[in-house]
Write a protein that binds this DNA or RNA. Structure first.
Lengths: 116, 116
DNA sequence: AAAGATACATAAGTTTCTTATGTATATAAG
DNA sequence: CTTATATACATAAGAAACTTATGTATCTTT
């Protein structure tokens, strides 16, 4: 069986928002750094979300009205919690369902072996 | 159960080369247009590879030594067949295996429901 | 005191795709 | 017969999403 340390970056492209929305639908509220660590932990380091990818993505989801934010002071440091809006909960389910459907299609496509 | 007509374009990003390499590992040789039609057919129009994406991708795979080409004249028209080189056969298996591994990881990641 | 972890942010550059355009032949429809 | 659609290639401009690099600042461990 095949095992790799980390996936090639093209593979992960397009899945970032789905992952973030799913985590937020399971955890009510999370902050950016927490999301990066959670994904690293849950995937055994196979998927590592970089901050340069995550923060702009969170900002755009907020601008779309999918996420709302709450800023909390931790000592002298600021922590920005994100949570799904009502609209965001719908978007989250749609994205996860779409990805599940996509995985079925890809599984079918990559399993076929006609001529050879 | 969720069903969609076509996947959002971000989702498909990064999977094009994997799909092409898998088709070529099952069919020995195919030409560009044939690949677009085959994918459309096999996925019930859910994945539609555009020629603007496919041809540059085929060219770069050829430049990397993963594909080799053979030009055939069909009447007055030209058809360019692509097939996997020896190196390409290895790459094809790797890409498909990597994607299968990635799907397992994503399935796990998107199924988790702890706190809620 | 320094190194590493926590925590945010942005900007330049790259890759990969979409959309548009171009060329040309073959076939089906009106 | 001529127009639309399908076949078959190709490239180029622009958009989107990421990587890599950089910046700021605090907290904790060594």
């Amino acid at each position: 069986m095949y095992l790799c340390l980390m996936y090639s970056s093209e593979l992960i492209k397009g899945t970032l928002k789905t992952i973030v929305l799913k985590l937020l639908s399971d955890n009510q509220k999370m902050y950016g750094y927490e999301i990066t660590q959670k994904v690293k932990e849950l995937t055994g380091d196979k998927i590592q979300i970089t901050e340069g990818a995550l923060y702009p993505s969170l900002h755009s989801l907020e601008a779309e009205g999918i996420l709302s934010t709450e800023t909390v002071n931790i000592g002298k440091r600021v922590r920005k919690y994100y949570s799904l809006t009502k609209k965001g909960k719908g978007t989250s389910h749609e994205k996860v369902s779409e990805f599940a459907d996509f995985m079925n299609t890809m599984k079918f496509l990559l399993d076929i072996r006609p001529q050879v």
